[in-house]
């Protein structure tokens, strides 16, 4: 489902020097498979997720998702592909503060090109336990509830892959497990591959497959 090959990514430093970040010869993730990615801070985990999502472009290499090499797509093509095939859960939730919980989920559908499906948005919010919070704006929700809205939004377009970047880092310990369970359970239900970045061992240890970025990033 996800196949990375010869991915290289570097940044130009302010002084003009080149800072290599990613050098990944090969990486696979099967459909419906769930992987926890660990690695030290600054090792390039978020950069890798951005590259897989098409937010950043690799300097070279293939990023094949569901058979499409998004590295070859135009920026607009990557945007469309991301909207349709990839769900993204962020550490800081990244909900739009002016929109209600329901609208935040629908917003995820709006950019996918298809019609917004409020019924599915409500169903997803029901599924994450927010039936009574449709019209609440993010500021009126607890952090745990905000992250659940973010999970519902990531699922909105029935993606093939969910990228989760430290989804529990800003959630209190009481709700961390709920969020992890929610993401994993929903991915299982809809056969969505999950690529979850975490620095928490108690989270990573729940996954059958755990990868350390430093083990396959030759940088």
């Amino acid at each position: 489902m996800l196949h990375l090959k010869n991915i290289k990514k570097s940044f130009v430093e302010p002084g003009g020097g080149v800072l290599p970040i990613l050098n990944i010869p090969e990486f696979h993730l099967e459909a419906g498979e769930q992987v926890a990615l660990i690695g030290r801070s600054g090792s390039g985990k978020t950069t890798l997720l951005h590259t897989i999502a098409g937010i950043s472009r690799a300097d070279s290499g293939e990023v094949k998702i569901d058979g499409t090499d998004i590295a070859r797509l135009s920026e607009a093509g990557r945007d469309r592909f991301r909207a349709e095939k990839i769900g993204y859960v962020y550490q800081t939730f990244n909900l739009l503060s002016g929109f209600s919980a329901l609208e935040n989920v629908i917003l995820g559908m709006t950019f996918a090109g298809g019609r917004s499906d409020p019924a599915r948005a409500r169903q997803l919010l029901d599924r994450v336990g927010l039936s009574a919070r449709y019209s609440h704006k993010p500021g009126m929700l607890s952090v745990g509830e905000q992250q659940r809205v973010a999970v519902a939004r990531a699922l909105a377009n029935r993606p093939k892959l969910i990228l989760a970047d430290e989804p529990t880092a800003n959630v209190d310990s009481k709700h961390q497990q709920q969020v992890i369970d929610l993401i994993r359970e929903n991915c299982r239900q809809e056969n969505i591959a999950l690529f979850l970045v975490t620095h928490a061992n108690e989270v990573a240890s729940q996954f059958e497959r755990v990868e350390n970025l430093e083990s396959f990033n030759r940088n």
Binding site: I55, A76, A83, E84, Y88, L96, G108, F111
Partner: peptide, 16 residues
């Protein structure tokens, strides 16, 4: 800018 980036990450094109 952050909101715009979120919309872009959700799939909104630059033109959108």
């Amino acid at each position: 800018r952050h909101e715009i980036a979120v919309m872009r990450a959700l799939g909104a094109s630059r033109g959108t």
